[in-house]
């Protein structure tokens, strides 16, 4: 199952390395990892997507807490969340395929961000599944170059990630498997 772990970390040199190294050392495969600023100065936010069972997701969360620079970790697989991925796709667009491409762009809510005589560059934002779908429809035109940013995510509703004060939510209290 796919787990989206969100980690608030101190914005300091080497912290990305510490987190990435932990995943490597504990033999967890990272599907995507993004880092960015947050509403608080000095605090960065990492979104890490891994494919693992529940037990392993708990394990890696606990290991993340052993890192001194990691402030808080949340597993968004356990709650409703907004997930967003962004892709830039440069697609071949010559002759009459250009018109067909523009129809696909229209239908899929993609944005044209650049054009040339032979190509069109599109920006697609949305749930990762939406991106998969759109990219699938672009494939027949000929994808020249493509990049995805990796997932960013945020829980829905009025909850927000805040450093816990005091107690640790007991692992065994959370059902395993």
């Amino acid at each position: 199952m796919r787990h989206t772990l969100v980690a608030l970390v101190e914005d300091k040199p080497g912290v990305l390395n510490r987190v990435a190294s932990l995943f490597r050392r504990r033999a967890f495969n990272i599907e995507s990892l993004t880092v960015g600023h947050t509403e608080r100065p000095g605090v960065s936010r990492m979104t890490i997507v891994i494919d693992s069972d529940q037990t392993s997701a708990h394990r890696v969360t606990a290991h993340l807490y052993t890192l001194v620079n990691v402030i808080q970790v949340d597993d968004l697989a356990e709650k409703p969340a907004v997930n967003r991925d962004l892709a830039l796709v440069k697609v071949r667009a010559e002759g009459d395929s250009r018109a067909r491409l523009l129809r696909v762009v229209d239908e899929t809510r993609a944005h044209i961000v650049d054009t040339s005589a032979t190509t069109v560059t599109l920006e697609i934002t949305g749930e990762p599944e939406h991106l998969d779908l759109v990219i699938g429809r672009l494939q027949p035109f000929g994808v020249v170059e493509m990049v995805r940013t990796g997932l960013v995510a945020m829980a829905r509703g009025d909850v927000a990630m805040r450093p816990p004060n005091g107690g640790y939510s007991n692992h065994a209290a959370v059902p395993l498997d």
Partner: peptide, 17 residues
Amino acid sequence: IDPSEVNKNVKVDVALI
């Protein structure tokens, strides 16, 4: 004392951290 040790090697019924 270290939560990352709980349920790592052996699954337990109660953990007191």
